[in-house]
């Protein structure tokens, strides 16, 4: 249930993960993305989500993701960006959990799907909020950028999953 580690180890891991994800969200705001399409981002925080998903399961990944979106929006976002991120995060974590559940993909494949679904989620939310449906034209760009960042983030996540050992869990 908890990745085979003690309750204390589980709690501290979750805390560290949430803090790391928040820090990565902040680092990301410092890196300018030279793209004319809104919503293109590196998705560095997804390294942590992928790691937690593979180590501690989807409940833990959802919790860390929720904490990260809430705090990041509060600290360096707006009401609108909060809604977009939340929609993206929900869709992304759901799809990643399902793909991981099939046991047919490595963390990299799961991360790619997550990155793309995050972008799809935020575009859907933006269409709902603003009613401007033409922004669907941004989807191809967002999917390609999700593919590229998803691979990079996924490789980083895979390395973490492989290298980091939590307590007694040896998997």
């Amino acid at each position: 249930m908890r990745g085979g580690i003690s309750k204390t180890a589980y709690m501290t891991t979750m805390g560290v993960a949430a803090a790391a994800a928040l820090a990565l969200s902040y680092v990301e705001t410092l890196i300018p993305v030279p793209m004319a399409v809104p919503g293109v981002k590196l998705g560095l925080a997804n390294i942590v989500t992928v790691f937690v998903l593979f180590k501690l399961g989807w409940r833990a990944a959802s919790a860390v993701s929720a904490v990260r979106v809430a705090l990041a929006s509060l600290l360096f976002g707006t009401m609108l960006s909060a809604a977009y991120s939340a929609a993206g995060a929900v869709l992304s974590v759901t799809v990643m959990a399902l793909l991981k559940g099939t046991k047919k993909f490595t963390p990299t494949g799961v991360s790619v799907a997550g990155a793309i679904m995050h972008n799809v989620g935020q575009i859907l939310m933006a269409m709902m909020i603003t009613g401007v449906e033409q922004i669907a034209a941004w989807l191809p760009m967002l999917i390609v950028s999700g593919l590229v960042t998803g691979i990079a983030v996924g490789i980083a996540g895979s390395v973490l999953v492989k290298v980091v050992k939590l307590g007694k869990s040896e998997d």
């Binding site: 046991k103 047919k104 993909f105 490595t106 494949g109 790619v112 799907a113 999917i143 593919l147």
Partner: peptide, 21 residues
């Protein structure tokens, strides 16, 4: 091996998305 299959599936997934785009 399972791991090789997973890597193959990853690559298929990535190629499918890139082709669709």
């Amino acid at each position: 091996s399972d791991q090789k299959k997973r890597i193959r599936n990853d690559i298929l997934l990535i190629l499918a998305i890139a082709l669709a785009a």
